[in-house]
Design a binder for these strands. Sequence first.
DNA 1: TCGCACTTATCTACTAGTAAGTGAGTCGCA
DNA 2: TGCGACTCACTTACTAGTAGATAAGTGCGA
Lengths: 203, 203
Amino acid sequence: MLTALLFSMAVTPSSSTADLILDAAERRAQSVGFNGFSYADIADELKVTTATIHYHFSAKSDLGADLLHRYAQRFREALADIIRREHSSVTQLRAYARLYEDVLSEGRLCLCGILAAEYETLPAQMREQIVAFFASNEAWLANVLQAGRERGELRFAGETRDHAMAIICGLEGALLVARAYGGVTRFRVAAEIVLSGAAPAVA
Amino acid sequence: MLTALLFSMAVTPSSSTADLILDAAERRAQSVGFNGFSYADIADELKVTTATIHYHFSAKSDLGADLLHRYAQRFREALADIIRREHSSVTQLRAYARLYEDVLSEGRLCLCGILAAEYETLPAQMREQIVAFFASNEAWLANVLQAGRERGELRFAGETRDHAMAIICGLEGALLVARAYGGVTRFRVAAEIVLSGAAPAVA
DNA sequence: TCGCACTTATCTACTAGTAAGTGAGTCGCA
DNA sequence: TGCGACTCACTTACTAGTAGATAAGTGCGA
């Protein structure tokens, strides 16, 4: 363990080396992509050797799979939290978009968004995890949209699932484009239109 | 020249080696990204050595800049062509979305979309070219939207430029997500909603 | 004979990955 | 209580392979 026992009672919660590696890898993956960082980059940051990383994640594909597993779990928790906190479909959608915005304000992208760009180069397991992420987001959004329509909070024509998909596409694209061109402000404007387009009553 | 003079009169138009290199690099960049292919990949495909590629593009950043220059030029021509061919803003928007769909149906993404994901790893010149691409697309779309609104073909609230941006984000995102999750059909559905959201009269 | 388009051969830097070893700590047992 | 066996978390030192890049040389057509 990097964090000695001395620190285990400190205010800062002690993190295992494996967690610190995942944290560093996640930050880098959300910024430069999975192929954009090396074991050496993380090793340098954590002041360990690359062999240490191999000890915890024997292959980079394992690191990637663990990365996506943890990310998907955290995202699911965030979505459940939104349902607990917000009781109108309109504020739920806004909170959903806020999840994306917060990531961008740290100069990062959605992990699955940036990995979708690298999709063709990724191992099979990671591909499946990315697809599963989009599917579960679509399902969550479809629930929100459906409930909103039934309660009269939202109005839109056509399939609920299609609109859910369109929102994901709009937000992922806004993240991608706004990072290069326009920043957080532009993301916010685009996100507002994406939500209002799929659910006019939001505007 | 790879294509001997023998073929210069053939049905297939003769391409210089530099063009063939750009063609191969473009296909790969739109599939696996700029960092996802190497000089060796292209050299293998074209049955030349990597030194040949260096002869035409001394550094990979030069190749990237030329790639983006050519892509942006072709895109501009395609946009001018749409204005020439289509005379309603509704069909112009559809044709614009079709540009994206055609790329996806070949298993590729918009070059600037996929490079936007790699933005942090790219040389300065390429970054500027990517930003310029989005800016010129935004300007073109804003013109179409503005004219459509003035002619009563389109109806939407707020800034024209913001809606233009939202369309770009929606289509780029749909490309990204649909390649991994759902394919061309799903792209088409998402694109339809993106256009109808920014311009309700399209639906 | 000049020079364009290209090859051969090579370089350094970096990639993921591995084998072997080390020191600290824990466990079971007499 | 003390000691050997063992495990955990790591390092050192290394590998094969690949990245972009370069210098020097070749062949062929104008």
